[in-house]
Design a protein around this nucleic acid. Structure first.
Length: 784
DNA sequence: TTAAAATCGCTGGTC
DNA sequence: GCGATTTTAA
């Protein structure tokens, strides 16, 4: 977060409390407006976190509230931790036991206290995605739903979107049901919720939904919380979904008995940075704030302390194209700085080379690598840059890799702990029943399931009963008996011996540690390291239960932070971060904006993609490098691509455009790309007038964008190039008429000359003289 | 039951 | 082109 430097113009009167003195006028207003609903529209780099934390401190200093009377909600643990730390620094005392945390952590806390009211026990398990999918798979199997056609993953997504909208199975209307598995999703959803209850488990959505249900069915409980929390504070309000909104609104209401009305809710956010619509966030929540909370005061933080005017202007020009926004104008006192550089390159490899060179140049000039970030649209795009950085010997780190708690060994270990703590946890038991290998295969498992279902008992109990019979083969029977006995033994040790010792005992006696010690694969040592790390992490907790709660809710991903390294991450991952220099590669139609977003949500999606571009640009303090490639290999197929429409939307005054010679014109046309520097109007001459894009793409109609190619003006490289909406850049193949025969000598723009070895429809296998054997589309080669 | 072979499917990613 | 998952063969 940007640390606003003291602003001389906002020099505070001497009477001001010192913690208010460093704030600018608007920030101070946001801090001091304590009563009634407040929406703080905090633009990128305007000192949002500082304002938020100061407001918290001010509530206490001014005597308006005591810590337990404040509810402060964030989305990520990182944000919660940062807020805690900074508030503690202001107060000069630790922030402990506060109601300051993520939506889910606070929801879980409330739910544990009132679990019985919604049919759970207080020690319920919190399931993660893996568990959920396994559970859904089982349900779908029982219901004979074809999981080829309707993958469990997809059903999970459907259910999650429902939960985002606070739709419990009983609230689902016919219009919501959709066509998943022929409309059976509803039924499966209800079964899923039933199963969760018998498993004494809740998924993340439930942590909020159950609390909402609880509030609605137990007004007394709700009133208790309403009376307790005199002040509500919400961070990143633009990312809230319907369930979170309802949860907040219930808490912000006056108690039903009308004792006192308060509505002291303060939401902080930026509609221009709403980039999580795909996971249920409703920008509408922030756009609607004044309606939802009558009498709301809106405070805009617009002074930016992060970026140069050039960067801000370019970003502002881009985001101004969005229709649905509250609107604000960022300004800064900083020096103009460098223009944004836009660069077109031949292909992805060259783009990576370009980025690598520029990064090296910055490094040579004395810029720290940690102050450089490469922000991509999607995770897979990091690969090209990683490869390039490795060849260059540039140290880098990828932020947002697999999370610690998602790693296999951690999840396995956790499953052991879960079964010890909560024997009813069938999902955990199933996970480790044959890990390490104990000779318990599908046959034995099926027998277990059969018994468990018939007698309506948990799997562990079914296992215990089954080993007393002759149902199983002796080998399986023996090993299940041993496992059950082990669990009994470990369970008896709960509370008897130190929980870290117990954890170690479990992992050793179960043979789990040994399993990885025997494993000769490259990753085994790392996994053992992670297990050690897990035990170390346990030390910070009083017992296994507390630890399990922590891991399912928190377990942050501490990236190997050390060293001066280039940062490589997705645009989503970059939100809230800032760097001196930011590289934004892959600005091509279909990639960014992403075709899939356009297909799924049309114009809404396009606006969200544009906000993502805005977020990307505003991460930079001093320098922005945007690039695009004319050709790219996607899933092993060469595709041509067009520069992103966002490039046209960047105001020319703040941008320096530069494309490699020969891009897009085949060397024959006198196009804007031919001469190196792009003309003012860039590539708008490629068929479409500016302004038509949004709609056509938004509607998802099949349209040919590359008008010139169709009119036959594009000679040379892309004779049959054609861009079709819905598959951004597919090359047309003449139907039915094979252009080539086996053995033909051909020329390929990238691979050079070669001979055709095989033909499979439009796919040719060609032995190139230089590049070796490749599979290519026939439209990319021409007779030599 | 296990290992090899085939197939799939592929944004974004917190809690 | 890759990696995870699932099917198949032994």
């Amino acid at each position: 977060m940007a640390e606003p430097v003291a602003n001389p113009q906002a020099a505070a009167p001497a009477t001001l409390a010192p913690y208010l003195a460093d704030l600018n006028e608007k920030q101070r207003e946001a801090v001091e407006t304590l009563d009634g609903p407040v929406l703080v529209l905090a633009g990128a780099g305007t000192g949002k976190t500082r304002t938020l934390t100061t407001r918290l401190a001010h509530l206490l200093f001014s005597g308006k509230a005591r810590p337990w009377e404040i509810l402060a909600v964030t989305f990520t643990n990182k944000a919660a931790a940062e807020m805690k730390e900074r508030v503690a620094a202001l107060l000069r005392r630790p922030v402990e036991g506060w109601y300051l945390g993520t939506f889910h952590a606070l929801g879980a806390r409330m739910l544990r206290r009132h679990a019985e009211s919604v049919g759970l026990k207080p020690n319920f398990t919190i399931l993660d995605t893996d568990d959920q999918i396994r559970l859904l798979k089982q349900l779908m199997q029982a219901e004979q739903v074809d999981d080829k056609k309707w993958p469990a993953r997809a059903l999970l997504a459907v259910i999650q979107r429902w939960k985002d909208r606070a739709l419990t199975p009983d609230k689902l209307s016919a219009a919501d049901v959709g066509d998943f598995a022929g409309g059976r999703a509803h039924e499966l959803y209800a079964q899923y919720q039933e199963r969760l209850k018998t498993l004494n488990a809740a998924d993340f959505g439930d942590l909020l939904l159950h609390v909402i249900t609880l509030f609605q069915s137990h007004p007394d409980v709700l009133a208790e919380y309403q009376r307790q929390f005199k002040f509500l504070l919400v961070d990143e309000y633009q990312d809230t979904n319907v369930a979170q909104y309802l949860w907040l609104r219930l808490l912000a209401q006056a108690p039903a008995d009308g004792t006192e009305a308060r509505h002291n809710i303060c939401c902080v956010g930026d509609d221009d940075q709403s980039i999580y619509g795909w996971r249920g966030a409703e920008v509408g929540n922030i756009l609607r704030f004044e309606k939802d909370f009558p009498g709301a005061k809106i405070i805009r933080l617009e002074q930016n302390y992060r970026s140069t005017p050039h960067i801000l202007s370019a970003a502002s020009g881009l985001i101004a194209q969005n229709e649905d926004r509250l609107g604000k104008t960022l300004w800064t006192e900083a020096e103009a700085g460098e223009p944004i550089r836009v660069r077109g390159l031949w292909d992805g490899e060259e783009e990576a080379r370009y980025v690598g060179e520029e990064v090296e140049a910055l490094h040579t000039k004395g810029h720290a690598l940690a102050e450089v970030a490469v922000l991509v649209r999607a995770g897979f795009q990091t690969r090209e840059f990683e490869e390039r950085f490795i060849t260059l010997g540039l140290p880098y780190r990828v932020i947002g890799g697999p999370r610690f708690y998602e790693r296999r060994e951690i999840r396995d270990a956790m499953a052991y702990f879960r079964v010890v703590v909560q024997p009813d946890d069938d999902l955990a038991f199933e996970r480790i029943i044959n890990v390490p290998k104990r000779g318990i295969g599908p046959a034995a498992l099926q027998a277990l399931h059969g018994l468990a279902r018939a007698q309506e008992i948990p799997l562990t109990l079914a296992a215990a009963r089954l080993v007393a019979t002759d149902e199983l083969k002796p080998a399986a029977r023996r090993s299940i008996a041993a496992l059950i006995e082990s669990f009994d033994r470990w369970r008896a040790l709960l509370g008897q011996i130190d929980h870290t010792d117990l954890a170690e005992t479990i992992l050793d006696e179960s043979g789990y540690t040994e399993m990885w010690q025997r494993d000769k694969s490259a990753e085994a040592p790392g996994r053992l390291e992670n297990l050690k790390e897990l035990i170390r992490a346990l030390e910070a907790f009083d017992n296994l239960e507390g630890f399990l709660e922590h891991v399912s809710l928190v377990m942050e991903n501490d990236e190997a932070a050390g060293g001066d390294r280039v940062n490589l991450m997705t645009l989503h991952g970059a939100k809230g971060l800032e760097f001196d220099s930011v590289f934004l590669p892959g600005w091509e139609e279909g990639i960014f904006p992403s075709q899939r977003t356009l297909d799924e949500t049309g114009l809404t999606g396009l606006e969200e993609e544009r906000r993502l571009a805005y977020v990307g640009i505003t991460r930079a303090r001093r320098r922005v490098f945007i690039s695009y490639a004319a050709n790219r290999r996607v899933y092993n197929q060469w595709q041509t691509s067009l520069p992103s429409r966002f490039l046209e939307e960047l105001p020319d005054d703040f941008v320096e455009r530069d494309a490699d010679t020969g891009l897009y014109d085949g060397g024959q046309r006198d196009s804007a790309f031919g001469g190196g520097r792009l003309s003012e109007h860039g590539w708008s001459q490629f068929g479409d007038p500016v302004g038509g894009y949004g709609q056509r793409h938004g509607q998802g109609r099949r349209t040919t964008r590359w008008g010139a190619a169709e009119r036959g003006e594009m000679q040379g490289r892309y004779t049959s190039a054609k861009v079709i909406e819905g598959r951004a850049t597919t090359l047309e193949t003449a139907p039915g008429t094979p252009r080539f025969a086996l053995g033909d000598r051909v020329f390929h723009q990238k691979f050079g000359y070669g001979a055709i070895n095989a033909i499979d429809g439009d796919k040719l296998t060609i032995a190139f003289e230089k590049a070796g054997e490749k599979k290519v589309l026939d439209s990319f080669v021409e007779p030599a």
